[in-house]
């Protein structure tokens, strides 16, 4: 089970175990990491599961494509390392990955 680290905007850190094939969003919400409302439940329709992939881990994930990229344009404070966590599927390669949460999702 890969372990992911979520760092809230205020610095609070959460270590979360995720299943391979599960979305990063679900791993986080299942572990009650705050600040990810994920209103649409992973349908890539709400942009309230926005996270920043830590720069050191960017090579392990692809750049957002198509509809995710379009949705992200309207996410709160988008950056180059922004991803919608419901579209990030956990793989063994991601073990240890660090993700940062934005100050708001709306």
């Amino acid at each position: 089970m890969p372990t992911l680290t979520f760092i809230e905007h205020n610095g609070t850190t959460h270590q979360v175990k995720g299943d391979i094939g599960q979305s990063v969003m679900q791993a986080a919400t299942f572990a009650s990491v705050p600040g990810i409302p994920a209103d649409c439940g992973g349908a890539c329709s709400c942009a309230t599961c926005h996270t920043y992939v830590d720069e050191a881990w960017l090579s392990k994930v692809q750049a957002p494509e198509g509809m995710e990229n379009d949705m992200l344009e309207y996410a709160f404070e988008r950056r180059d390392n922004s991803r919608l966590s419901c579209q990030l599927i956990i793989s063994q390669e991601m073990d240890g990955m660090v993700l940062h949460l934005p100050s708001s999702q709306f």
Partner: peptide
């Protein structure tokens, strides 16, 4: 339809 950017802009 398949224009997520428009949808998000419309919501705003």
């Amino acid at each position: 339809c398949n224009r997520m950017g428009d949808h998000m802009a419309a919501r705003k």
